[in-house]
Computed example of a mutant assay.
Amino acid sequence: MDTPWLDDQQQRTWRAWLAVTELLPRTLDAQLQRDAGLTHAAYVVLAMLSEAPDRSRRMSDLARTANQSQSRLSHTVARLEERGWVRRERATEDRRGNVAVLTDEGWDVVQRVAPGHVAAVRDGLFAALTPEQTDALEQALGAVLERLDPDHTLRVPGVG
């Protein structure tokens, strides 16, 4: 049976994608470690909480919006709780689930760290692209997202 290998362009694109998905998170982690002693995954949790009504989300919703498994999110939130930046509460509507809440101290961290993070994202990704390339990247990533998540259950609302 013949294997349909990647053609040369697909191979170059795939390897560039692999490199970017390794190097960009490393760059963002370094900035966040330097500025706040945070991992990128922890910052995403804080950011998703900061954008939510009342700065709180059900843990299951937070896992989806932060692109983390329930287990990984639980560990991340535990570390943020230790720092006083997040607290967990019982969901008021059904008392079955837990809600993560961004504390005032956590809100202060987000406000302090966000400008540097935005600058790192802009420098690490968008500074290398023209507006046309940014449009093409958005369209390409949207198409891949649609293929990976056709029923839109895995992605953050408003993405793709």
Rank of each mutant, 00 (worst) to 15 (best):
L80Y: 01
F126Y: 15
G97I: 03
E132Y: 07
W85N: 00
R90G: 00
L129H: 08
E82P: 00
G106M: 08
G106E: 05
R112M: 12
Q111V: 06
R122Q: 15
H75V: 05
S74E: 11
V121I: 15
R112D: 13
A91E: 12
Q133M: 12
P115S: 10
R79Q: 11
G124H: 10
P115M: 12
T103D: 06
D94E: 09
L137W: 11
L80I: 01
T92Y: 04
A127I: 01
L137P: 00
Q68I: 03
G97F: 04
D94S: 10
R95Q: 13
T130M: 10
A119P: 00
D104L: 13
T76W: 04
D123E: 15
V77E: 03
Q70L: 11
N98V: 00
E93T: 09
H75L: 10
R72S: 14
R96A: 12
R87L: 09
G116K: 06
N98M: 09
Q111D: 12
S74C: 04
H117E: 06
P115N: 06
A78C: 02
G116C: 07
V110Q: 09
A91D: 13
V110S: 04
A120Q: 08
F126W: 14
R79S: 04
E89L: 12
V113E: 03
R122C: 02
G116Y: 09
L137D: 03
V86M: 02
A91C: 11
L125S: 03
A120L: 10
A127C: 03
A100K: 05
N67Q: 12
A127L: 12
A136T: 11
V99A: 03
G97Y: 11
H75R: 15
R95C: 00
H117M: 13
R95V: 02
V113G: 03
V118K: 07
R96T: 10
A128C: 02
R112I: 02
L137A: 14
Q133A: 14
V113D: 01
H75K: 12
R90C: 00
V101K: 08
G84Y: 08
A127P: 01
T76D: 05
T103V: 07
V110M: 08
L129W: 09
E89C: 00
V101F: 04
T65M: 03
V110C: 06
A78N: 08
N67E: 11
R112K: 15
G97R: 15
L102N: 10
R72T: 14
Q68N: 07
Q70F: 08
T103L: 07
N98W: 10
R96C: 01
P115K: 11
R96H: 11
R87S: 07
A136W: 13
G84L: 05
W85M: 02
G124F: 09
T130H: 10
V121R: 12
T65H: 06
F126T: 08
W107G: 07
A128W: 13
L73P: 02
H117F: 15
S74M: 05
E89A: 14
T103A: 06
V101N: 04
V109D: 01
E105L: 14
L102S: 09
F126Q: 07
E89Y: 01
E81G: 05
D104M: 07
R90T: 13
T65W: 08
R95N: 02
R83E: 01
E93V: 07
S71W: 06
N67P: 00
A136Q: 14
